[in-house]
Amino acid sequence: MSTRQLTANSRQSTAHPKTVTMTIDGKAVRVSEGASVLDAARQAGVHIPTLCHHEALEAWGGCRLCVVDVTRQGWDGWCKLVVSCMYAAEDGLIVLTDTDRVKLTRKVVLDLLLARCPETPLIQELASRHGIDRTSYQANPEPTDCILCGLCTRVCDHIGVSAISTVDRGIGKQVAPPFHQAPPDCIGCLACAEICPTSCIPYETSDTRRVIWEKSFEMVRCPQCGRAHITQEQARHYAGRGGVPASYFDTCDACKRRQLASTFTKLQVVQGGAR
């Protein structure tokens, strides 16, 4: 290939993102380069269970529930087990999501999770769907709902707050604020509680006050509808990040949309009148 062609090709590739074609459980799938095997499977409608994955966050590969077997033509039937959320889709990849090895691996993962969280409905349900009704290990005498998927700490990092983190390690590992005290950096956005797949982060929120991680927040009330929709710390944090004044967040999203809608209505009237 000449240099000229190469340049032409690379120019083309920026215009149309390169795609890769692979098969997942016999279905051919075409995805853009850089997608993960999990993305490809979701696009193809093949179900892969996950616990630590969220579209808004970078793949982490923590729960190991999304394991799949991958192989290629010419590998003589040899397969390797990979975590689909972190394995990049490649041309000619053959993905198998339902082999005995995949099923066994997921079963072990869920068996261990059920031992840790014997009373958690989400884990019970996932486990029973994989044929486990009771853990074959010793059930945790102090049941917890936290599966240490790291979604809460990662979303907190992603928002740019990093108020909580994992603390200690091994069996003592847990998610906690620094020094197990009300976290000074927390803005009370509830992202950690909302993203938690087992809803194990307690919080209270009302029109006057919000409490999470034992930290209390004052709410900002929308001047139009009176609804308490955001904490003062949230408004300040978003204002700092977005380069808008904190007062921008006084009005709630619903009222802002209503305002915008009425502005558009007026615009249409003017246009209609001009015609």
Binding site: C156, D157, T166, V167, P178, P183, D185
Partner: peptide, 25 residues
């Protein structure tokens, strides 16, 4: 010491939660 960790976090511009995470790990 707790107060030293707070100062380290400020000086290195690392979230305190991360310093605590490393310190306990």
């Amino acid at each position: 010491p707790c107060d030293v960790l707070v100062k380290v976090a400020e000086a290195l511009d690392v979230p305190l939660a991360k310093v605590f995470s490393v310190g306990t790990f």
